[in-house]
Simulated assay, not measured.
Amino acid sequence: MSRKSAAPVVAELGRPETPEETATRKAASSQAYRSSQTFRHLIAALILTLGVVAVIVFAVPRGEPAARDDIDVAAIAADVETAMDGPALVPELDDFWRVNAAELTGGATVVWNITVAPADEEERGFIRIAQAFDADASWAPQMLDGFASTSTVTIDGREWDVYDIGDRGSANVSYALGTQAGSDYVLLFGSRSPESTAGLAESLSPQITTLEEAE
């Protein structure tokens, strides 16, 4: 004849568990197990995610930053000459300079703009070379917050108007040089030193002579 085994005595209770107590204990145990598994899964997922990120970081090629595209000033100037039916400046720059922008802008005065900056990024500043078609010195203050020429200087036998703005202007323009080139006015303005601006002006002399001879 079979006999049911007696329920074990629980030390905390000092008596056998009731069926309800047994069910509650097993449910709590299952809940604790599921919680521990969820935590383990979370940790495993985190480790996996970090591993994927590490693979991406180390697998992506680093190398040097992409070199900026060279601007073909001569090609753009050719289009400007066609549009304006006249010569446009094409500066012959040495290795110190790089061209950041070259464009023709419209308005009351049409201007051929070439913005240059030192090729060495540790050197600061910029100079914009602006050829204003059919303009004279009265146009320059429009580009210089209303500042007029303060004096003149001779560079390579050519007289240039000096605009010594210092920190009184805006748009990071502190100095400018301008000269008449036939029917056009050429203005160099920016944040480089007077010496640097004068050096660029001297390099433009042959180009400016070409503009004059084209009249």
Rank of each mutant, 00 (worst) to 15 (best):
K4N: 14
S5Q: 15
S5D: 15
A7D: 10
V9G: 09
A11C: 06
A11F: 09
E12V: 13
G14I: 01
G14R: 01
T18L: 07
E21C: 06
E21A: 07
T22G: 12
R25Y: 03
S29P: 00
R34K: 02
S35R: 12
I43K: 05
A45K: 09
L48H: 03
V52Y: 02
I56P: 01
F58I: 09
E81D: 03
T82E: 15
A83H: 05
M84K: 06
M84D: 01
M84A: 06
E92P: 06
L93A: 01
D94L: 05
T105W: 01
W112Y: 04
N113W: 05
T115P: 05
A117T: 15
G125I: 11
R128L: 15
I129N: 04
A130S: 14
A135W: 08
W139Y: 06
M143C: 10
M143D: 13
D156Q: 13
R158F: 03
R158C: 04
Y163W: 02
D167Y: 04
N172L: 06
N172D: 14
N172E: 14
Y175Q: 01
A176P: 10
L177H: 01
T179H: 03
Q180S: 07
L188Y: 03
L188D: 02
G190N: 01
A198K: 04
S203E: 08
L204Y: 03
S205M: 07
I208N: 10
T210E: 15
L211T: 07
